[in-house]
Structures are given as structure tokens and as C-alpha cells.
Amino acid sequence: MLVKQVSAFIENKAGRLNEIADTLAKNNIDISALSLADTTDYGIVRMIVCDPEKAVLALRESGVVCKITETLAIAIDDAPGGFAKGLKALTDNGIEIKYMYACISHEKGKALMILSVDDPQKADALLASTDAGKVNPSEIYRHI
């Protein structure tokens, strides 16, 4: 399933990540998945949130450079071998991963992975009929 990811630029300085977390908290935005890429000078926070558009507006308002990118969510079995099976589905379909991270899941026995790929639409179409493609949207954009 296609998922809108919010990514934001953060300088490697104390308190920068706090500012982002505070802004999201104040705007009542729930975070389902988060990963942090870091380099020596800066980092990129990538998040799956309940309301991406609202999150971006709020973050920009607070002076954060951010954007929305299309990513892919896949479902895997929450059991030994589940991750391997999920990856196999991608490899079998010739999908290359730029980066990936885990997302919480509330469905018993299932886990979710968020992937960045070159052509998310195409990847999504290829996976739609497989087990990996069976993702419930309400699991991702959860409104509380």
C-alpha cells in the first residue's frame, strides 16, 4: 500500500529533534513509524503520521524544512522468517530498496515495514496481490 511519508531536515544540534516532537504533539499528530538518518552535520527524520498534510503545515510553520514523499508499506508475519519472506516478495518482483524502517502494527501476528523505492506506484501494483501487499490503511493513518 502507498503511504505518505513526512521527512524533515534537522541540524545535528541539541534540542532540534525535540522541537519537531513538540510541534507534532501540540498539533495532536500521532506517529506510527519513525527513522532517523544521520550524517556528521545533519540528519533526516522520516515519519509516518496520522495526518501528513497537517504535520507538514505545522512543521513548516515552526521553521522546519520538510516534505512529503510517497513510500510503500508492506505487511510481514510477526514471526521468525517473516522479514525474510517479505524481502523475498520484493526481490522476486525486482524491487530495490533505498531505505526502510519498521512501523508499529496493531493487527495480531503482523508487522509493518515502510520502504522507499524508486517507483512506488509500480512496486505497489506488483505487490498488491501478494501477502506483503495486504495492509489495512487504518493501521497506518491512525486517528485517535
Partner: peptide
């Protein structure tokens, strides 16, 4: 200062 034009979700593009 980082701008929307220069920003990307992956490190490679920013590098």
C-alpha cells in the same frame, strides 16, 4: 540554511 528546494528525504540527494 537548508531550503525546500535543496531538501530531500534521502541522504544521497542532499550530499
Amino acid at each position: 540554511e537548508m531550503s525546500e528546494e535543496m531538501f530531500s528525504d534521502d541522504v544521497k540527494s542532499i550530499a
